[in-house]
Computed example of a mutant assay.
Amino acid sequence: MGKAGRFACILTPMLLTLAGLICIILVMIGQLSTSGNNAPTTKLGRDLYFFKADTSNFGDKPNKLDDLNIDNNLLEALQGQASAGHLKDFYQVGLWSYCEGDKDPKTGVETITHCSSSKSNFWFDPFTVWNLKNSTAQKIVGDEKLEKGLNTYKKVSGFMIWSFGIALALSAAEIIIGFFAIFSRWGSLVTTIISTAQTIFILAAASTATATYGLLVGVFETALKDINIEANMGKQMLGVMWLAVAFGVASGLFWLFSVCCCSGKSPHKKVSVEKTPYTYERVASPAFPAQHGQQHTGYAGASHSQQQGTAYEPFRKNHV
């Protein structure tokens, strides 16, 4: 396989790595503001979220509070926030920030009105967002239901963010180092090592995000479902995230394949042997011409001439 075959062998994992890098970037721009003034995110960013809390149906609840499986202090606090216009219709959580907005009751069209500032240690705290921090509602309800789930989410959110960041950096390094793999199997070996590390981090990040936000959805459903506050995970974000994992695994396997195969050397390279200068060739003796059908070649011919008692040297020096 020549250089062209080597290039084709490297091209496949390079494209897979690039696709994985794009997926990680998409995960990281979800719910990210388009500017520094917390403006709404782009349409692509709006559709990518890990977790969504829908509070648009909060007003559609039974009149008898005794029928609700929720603490009255939390309900009254939320009612106060809704009356003051501080409770938005939905909240979407990304990796670095969250966005909130309104929902048209007739058409169901959602419009993002505000996005929070991005933070490297971001985690979504509904009590802070709903202005219920350190309130009686948080102390009573949070200890039993929301608090435990939120504490778990807070602890692993930093690891999750750093895992995605490291996976992004390793993906970029994988592409850069991958160019050297075109010329050498050693380049493929180094790239394979980097790819393995990238796969480990993106897999850890995706697994952590899936488990964490799945837990958060369960906590919201348990604690707030009776007052029609719903929660769900973003299918688009999950799809993009696990697609990044798939691309990472596939690229690693192809990088490993390029270490074992695709040497870049042609198996049909021709080797020509030229005559060295000052070689000897057998010539016919003028005194003893060769008989018909007899060849005087090699050392045997020389011995025959010497047996005839002649001093003629049967070899000539050939200057090439």
Rank of each mutant, 00 (worst) to 15 (best):
A206P: 03
G214K: 01
K145T: 12
T136S: 15
G178T: 08
E147N: 15
E144A: 13
S171C: 03
T152E: 13
I202F: 01
I176T: 06
F164K: 03
S207N: 13
S207A: 09
I193P: 00
I166K: 02
F180R: 14
V156S: 07
A167I: 05
S207P: 11
N134H: 05
Y153A: 06
K154P: 01
A173E: 05
T136R: 15
I182W: 08
M160N: 07
F164E: 03
L150Y: 07
T196V: 04
F180G: 11
I200L: 09
V141E: 15
T136L: 09
D143T: 14
S157R: 05
L170D: 06
I176K: 08
L168G: 06
G149M: 08
I166E: 10
L146W: 13
W162C: 01
R185P: 07
I194C: 03
A169S: 01
I193F: 00
T199A: 12
K133V: 12
I166W: 02
T136D: 15
I182S: 07
T212Y: 02
A211E: 04
A167T: 07
I140F: 01
G214E: 00
E144N: 14
E174D: 12
N134F: 13
I182V: 13
W186D: 11
T191P: 04
L215Q: 05
E147M: 13
T208G: 10
I200D: 05
I182E: 10
R185H: 08
A137Q: 03
T192K: 10
